[in-house]
Amino acid sequence: MNMKKKLSAAEFVVLAEMNTPKGVDISEFVTNARGIKGRMDAVVIPDMDNGVMRMSALGGGALMRREGLEPVIHIYGRDKNRMALQGDILAAYVLGIQNLIVTPAEPMASGDHRDAKPVEDLDETGILEMIRSLCEGVDMAGFELKGAPDFTVGCAMAPVAGDQELAREVENLRGRVAAGAQYIITPPVFDLAAYEKMIEALRPLEVPLVATVFLLKNVGMARYLSIHEPGCRISEDMIRRIRKAPDREAECIRMAGETTAELRKMVRGVKITTLGWEHRLADILEKAGI
């Protein structure tokens, strides 16, 4: 059953995030994909994640399709205008990519090509409306397409630090759902009680939620996120648990697995982000009992 069918049948979806290589050596990318084949419903391919120039998500998605995995690619407006976005979206469809996530992009100033000129022709809502129009067979200039695509489209929720930001973000997402988002990828979950509150706030939007499980790899990463991303809610207990573990790496995997298992009871899917540790995806699923 593909991702679209699972989402509409209210079945739990498991997505794995995998970054494309910075270069043309795809061996590791393909090997990791083969390692998780059959265990994931789809592979999410970010586009220039964190503003770092890499092989495009379109290329990565096509490779995943070639390997027999279902791809989901990120779409955003920082690097492409409406012409390029529409062209790539049509290309994606004929290459077998039927799932898109419209995401915000990291500012150019935070990436590795800081002197580049951002485009920002369309924002996330504009891109969602454009995709819906393409699926209806019409481009943004009003011209009819020769063959229309059919995408399952999600949007991404920004991390929120407090109740005020959550209320504002819910309103943002309401606009994106109205513009065509069929599901929402929520930010990394470290505090399940706080996440329950977020689920409640998002419930009126009446779309499936896919929670992000973010693999903490070490104490330093956990500490950094707890300080610089207040919305992530990484507790001191969590950091202590990693620090005191005899095998810290195994403990991190176990924690991601436990979170995944809990989220299975709360939302309609998870997207597991391992930032280069894609070879450990299978272990996380095993710990989660999936």
Partner: peptide, 10 residues
């Protein structure tokens, strides 16, 4: 061109 000095840097 380095566009950071333009509006593109925020």
């Amino acid at each position: 061109k380095d566009w950071r000095t333009s509006r593109d840097g925020g």
